[in-house]
């Protein structure tokens, strides 16, 4: 008797638990998990996305096409994306950490400066792209200044290498503010006593940073690196505003390739294969970084 009540209570509470997670699970499954499933399925088909026409199963053909890359359009996009993700993440984090150290103390000027560093992030990437295109384009503000001063112009957006560097620069400008806030928060968590103790032991500024501050920041570093790489891997809006992928294909990112090339040309099968690969790459990169950082973080716990 007593036993059945507990079982019933167990079932009921299980049911209640299920109900509590249901809304989140339903929305997330319906619009993220199922689409990923669709993407995997379509990635093995040749399909133009038109409902009245059926997908044809082609096995690994789309993936083979991506890897063989017969017309040399996907490998450059993969390369561009990787450069943006790695170099961009490095610069974003470098700038954010440097400024966090500089703006650590809460003074009126520093509070103002923090807001100024953060504001590009509220503008939206597309608008940032258009704005910088107007500043750095062939007839943009900077080149007009140079021209009016009788100097030769700079090909910020018209030379393939420059364009990629410019793109990364603009992304860093727009994004490091968020990581700056995370670093500032991380710095608050660094024990002042430890730092003071280290200083009393005769350690100089750089040494305190290396042995106390940096290890204590380890968890923050992991989070900021992973979040910045994840957001850099899907860069699209800013490209659209700044270069629209050009010149040639110099700034076509993987996401641009998926949305503006494959999908826009009715190649849904290929677009989905590209999407699946990007999801895999994002996952592998993130987990690798988290695994690599684990040791550093263990160090942090020892210090903290």
């Amino acid at each position: 008797m007593a036993r059945t009540t507990t079982t019933r209570r167990g079932v009921l509470s299980g049911l209640a638990n299920g109900l509590m997670t249901l809304p989140a699970a339903a929305v997330y499954t319906g619009l993220t998990v199922v689409p990923v499933g669709y993407a995997v399925y379509y990635s093995f088909t040749q399909y133009n996305g038109i409902p009245s026409q059926a997908p044809t199963w082609v096995g690994w053909e789309n993936y083979a096409r991506i890897i063989a890359d017969p017309i040399g359009d996907l490998r450059p996009a993969a390369w561009v994306t990787l450069v943006i993700a790695v170099v961009g993440a490095f610069l974003v984090n470098g700038a954010a950490l440097g400024l966090a150290l500089l703006l650590r103390r809460t003074t009126a000027l520093n509070t103002f400066a923090r807001a100024v560093m953060f504001y590009p992030h509220v503008l939206s990437a597309l608008i940032v792209g258009f704005l910088w295109q107007a500043i750095l384009g062939p007839q943009g503000a900077v080149n007009n200044l140079l021209e009016n001063a009788g100097r030769s112009t700079w090909p910020f957006l018209s030379d393939p290498d420059w364009a990629l560097v410019t793109l990364i620069g603009v992304i860093v400008w727009a994004q490091f503010g968020v990581q700056l806030v995370l670093y500032l928060a991380g710095l608050q968590a660094v024990s002042p006593e430890l730092q003071e103790a280290a200083r009393l032991d005769g350690a100089g500024g750089p040494q305190v940073f290396r042995h106390v501050t940096w290890p204590a920041l380890a968890p923050t570093v992991t989070v900021t690196i992973v979040t910045s790489i994840l957001s850099l891997l899907k860069v699209y809006d800013v490209v659209l505003g700044l270069t629209n992928g050009g010149p040639g294909d110099a700034t076509q990112t993987w996401a641009y390739e998926i949305l503006a090339v494959s999908f826009a040309n009715n190649k849904v099968g290929l677009a989905c294969a590209q999407a699946v690969l990007l999801v895999v790459v994002a996952g592998v990169l993130s987990f690798t970084i988290i695994a690599l950082r684990r040791r550093a973080e263990e160090g942090a716990e020892a210090v903290g």
Partner: peptide, 17 residues
């Protein structure tokens, strides 16, 4: 083929590079 002009444009811009 689909997408001739975008591809043609992308490739032909390579001449300027």
């Amino acid at each position: 083929v689909a997408g001739f002009n975008p591809k043609f444009t992308e490739l032909v811009q390579g001449l300027w590079q």
